[in-house]
């Protein structure tokens, strides 16, 4: 953990002597404690997947989504404080709706990610506010350029475009696993299985709370519309993932 800092870490408006803004780093910690969210850019679309941890068995199945629709062609997966994340999602919806109203066409995802980064950044500038304890993955289709893209907006207000990204608790393990695969050559359907497998592998059933898997995509199959992956396909991918994990374990035992 970053060295806690002697009164330099009590406000987002204070720099530490070595040029850090501790409050932003602490906000990032809130994201790192959250269930993992992954995004991958495949050859035919972008896939988002979230490990939604369940705090009680009495929760209604499918409630409290962590993937959110923003416009026809854009959606987000969130990690961190979900209440904070909602505000970022709303900002995204307002941005795209405003763009459509003014220009009559869909906002490019690159511009949306940029605007969201500006919004999140604003909360790192004022003593009366606090930085967002949430990161968002933005999956979108650029109607004008006919390109699909994946962005991540972080609590510091920076934004990057990614081929594969993971945030939350299992991000390191997920990144390691993702780097072994070539998502750029895969279809979303193929990637879905791999992503399922990664999320199941890094979820520690003994230690972690049970989880629901949520997936959504913007891809050729959906007509480049953002939508939740149909439940049947999620089930199928999860079953494949579980079998694949089991057979991996069998192989290990044989070695």
């Amino acid at each position: 953990m970053s060295s806690t800092g002697a009164g330099y870490d009590l406000s987002a408006t204070t720099f530490s002597p070595d040029g850090k803004i501790f409050q932003v780093e602490y906000a990032t910690k809130a994201v790192e404690n959250s269930g993992t969210a992954m995004g991958v850019r495949c050859k035919d679309g972008v896939l988002l997947a979230v490990e939604k941890l369940l705090i009680s068995k009495m929760l209604v199945a499918g409630s409290n989504r962590r993937v959110h629709g923003v416009s026809k062609h854009v959606g987000m997966a969130v990690a961190g404080l979900s209440a904070d994340a909602r505000q970022i999602v709303y900002r995204g919806r307002d941005e795209v709706a405003g763009y459509i109203e003014n220009y009559g066409s869909q906002m490019p995802p690159s511009m949306l990610a940029d605007r969201l980064a500006q919004y999140v950044h604003y909360f790192t500038l004022h003593g009366s506010l606090r930085p967002f304890g949430a990161s968002v993955l933005v999956a979108g289709y650029d109607v004008e350029l006919k390109k699909h893209e994946l962005y991540v907006v972080e609590p510091s207000g920076v934004m990057y475009r990614y081929f594969g990204a993971a945030v939350g608790k299992g991000r390191q393990a997920a990144k390691t696993e993702m780097e072994k695969l070539k998502f750029d050559d895969m279809t979303c359907k193929e990637a879905m299985k791999q992503v399922c497998k990664i999320l199941h592998v890094l979820h520690d059933e003994a230690k972690d709370k049970p989880f629901e898997l949520e997936m959504s995509w913007v891809c050729e199959e959906s007509g480049w519309k953002y939508q939740a992956v149909p439940q049947a396909q999620v089930k199928e991918a999860e079953e494949w993932a579980k079998e694949s994990i089991e057979s991996d374990e069998m192989d290990d035992d044989e070695d």
Binding site: R65, H68, G69, V70, S71, K72, R93, A97, A228
Partner: peptide, 8 residues
């Protein structure tokens, strides 16, 4: 309508 869709 988009609001309804987003609410999901």
């Amino acid at each position: 309508h988009q609001y309804d869709v987003n609410m999901d």
